[in-house]
């Protein structure tokens, strides 16, 4: 008798907990079946922004800052979830397969337009609907401060005299900065020695220690060395000069005909998301990115703010994708 009572109460408690945990799980399932009917009362619960890189890194910080500002506008909170791996492909793939109800958005990075060409993943910008472009950082050709060349022209001269010897560090094989260096090679008809590192920071460290001759990473990533006076930037690979280094000319100003290459970050949602919802998100994020608070933050960190709306962003991604399609196959990656 005693035993039965005990077992009974155990059973009861188990059932209670099942119900409780079911409630916890269900809370997140609401509304996902009603994607089409959300329309005007979107959003009515928390939105999740997937960040495909590690917490504490550059992309993560930009995302969190943006979200902080954007959620005031929306009246609903936006939660950041980091899903890292595969140079961003793991997180972005998960995002592309999420429910197209607008409650899962992603911060996408330039690698999205590169995966198919690198063979990393079948993911392409077409798996998403663009919401807004937030940031763009061009590649900046940076060399030690005491290098024997002061302009891009002199650098190229030197490279022509020493084919295959000038070492250029990048953030890894197939990284955007590697592609940028390859781009320079093509445009200037020179041969460089590409030295891959485990990220931009180690490459910059190597440059500061004079172990390599140059890097082609973003201005933000060489900023501390620049301020310390140990490096100098010869040119930026973009259409306009960069705010952080306004005295540095662009490649085209120096007479070199090369594509603009840089890393970028934007917001997207799964491709099946209804247009009305995309519009609401576009408005929110575009205005958040234009807020003074956000621009201040980006400037403090030397990051470039470039805002494009949904349609423009879509075109931008397609252009990038085509450009990478031309450069990458020539790079002879394994």
């Amino acid at each position: 008798m005693f035993n039965l009572k005990k077992k009974g109460s155990v059973l009861l408690m188990m059932m209670l907990m099942i119900v409780l945990s079911a409630c916890n799980g269900e809370g997140n399932e609401e509304g996902t079946a009603n994607g089409e009917n959300q329309g005007t009362d979107f959003p009515n619960k928390e939105i999740e922004l997937i960040v495909p890189t590690a917490a504490g890194g550059g992309t993560d910080m930009v995302a969190r800052q943006l979200v902080d500002i954007a959620q005031d506008d929306l009246d609903e909170s936006i939660g950041v979830m980091n899903v890292e791996g595969g140079s961003g492909s793991v997180g972005m793939t998960q995002a592309a397969n999420a429910n197209p109800d607008g409650y899962t958005a992603t911060m996408v990075i330039a690698e999205l337009a590169m995966y198919e060409h690198l063979g990393t993943s079948p993911l392409t910008p077409e798996d998403f609907k663009p919401v807004a472009l937030i940031n763009y950082d061009p590649a900046a050709l940076t060399v030690p401060a005491d290098a024997p060349y002061d302009t891009v022209g002199e650098f190229i001269e030197y490279a022509k005299e020493h084919p295959g010897e000038v070492s250029v560090g990048n953030a890894g094989p197939g990284s955007i900065w590697h592609v940028a260096a390859a781009n320079l090679e093509n445009a200037a008809d020179i041969e460089l020695n590409h030295v891959p590192h485990e990220g931009a920071a180690p490459a910059v460290t190597a440059l500061a220690g004079n172990h390599i001759d140059a890097v082609t990473v973003s201005p933000a990533e060489v900023r501390t060395q620049l301020d310390a006076g140990s490096v100098k930037v010869l040119a930026v690979m973009s259409d306009e000069r960069h705010d952080l280094i306004p005295d540095v000319p662009t490649l085209s100003e120096e007479g070199i005909d090369a594509e603009s290459i840089g890393t970028w970050r934007g917001i997207t949602v799964p491709s099946e998301t209804p247009d009305e919802i995309v519009e609401i998100l576009e408005e929110t994020f575009v205005s958040a990115a234009k807020e003074e608070e956000f621009i201040d933050f980006m400037n403090k960190n030397g990051l470039g703010v470039q805002v494009k709306g949904s349609e423009e962003f879509g075109e931008f991604m397609e252009e990038n994708r085509a450009m990478f399609g031309e450069i990458i196959p020539e790079m002879g990656l394994e």
């Binding site: 504490g56 890194g57 910080m61 920071a201 460290t205 500061a208 501390t224 060395q225 301020d227 310390a228 933050f297 403090k300 960190n301």
Partner: peptide, 24 residues
């Protein structure tokens, strides 16, 4: 020098920069 010695100092570096400090 603004060069992190390990993963933790890398995060701290980020924290310093956000606070407006310039390691170096």
């Amino acid at each position: 020098l603004g060069i992190p010695g390990d993963a933790v100092t890398a995060v701290l570096l980020g924290a310093l920069i956000v606070q407006g400090l310039q390691p170096g």
